[in-house]
Amino acid sequence: ELTQDEIQLLQYVMESYNKNRMPQDLTSKLIENLSTDDNFIFLTTMATSHVQILVEFTKKIPGFQTLDHEDQIALLKGSAVEAMFLRSAELFNKKLLDSHTDVLEERIWNSGISHDYINPMFSFYKSVGELKMTEEEYALLTAVVILTPDRQFLKDKESVEKLQESFLHILEKLCKQHHPNNPQHFARLLGRLTELRTFSHHHTDMVMSWRVS
């Protein structure tokens, strides 16, 4: 069972996670028919908005503000792309786009982005979907992604590790509560983090190839 402190920490994170979502007027544009140029600009705006929302969420993670300012930037820079793919996986799997995911999926396939990049993305969404994650699990996993202690340029790895451990601990307990018949659930969630890292590596190439195309 969660301790009183852990319950409070979880409540705090959930409140912030739910408050910091993509604005409705922006997500509703996802299903509009845009020209290729407008589509590119729109997705750039989406990505920018995602980063702003991610920062707002991260600011509220207990302990984050106590970290060195440059370390805060190193953590956010290192995790932005991974957090974006995790959030997209949640959008797709929980049908948060008012069941317009099919339209969006088709647009992504026809966007001009090489299918070599799109295939692993949808395969990731599918593998995340199979885990049947709860909202708490998505929020905590996002916090764990942000508080990764081996990001480039991070100075005080020890403090970040301590913060990350407290969230990993709560996540592990929740996994046991939510999925009592699946003792491997927690390990599988962590496995998805490894997959997320590969997106971070390929993201720049993907955007570049898209821009050229």
Binding site: I41, T44, T45, T48, V51, Q52, V55, E56, K59, H69, Q72, I73, L76, K77, A80
Partner: peptide, 21 residues
């Protein structure tokens, strides 16, 4: 426009809480 900013600029501005500036 925001689309011309790099990732680090966006993060710095958002952290400072003055993204609209």
């Amino acid at each position: 426009p925001a689309s011309n900013l790099g990732l680090e600029d966006i993060i710095r501005k958002a952290l400072m809480g003055n993204f609209d500036d």
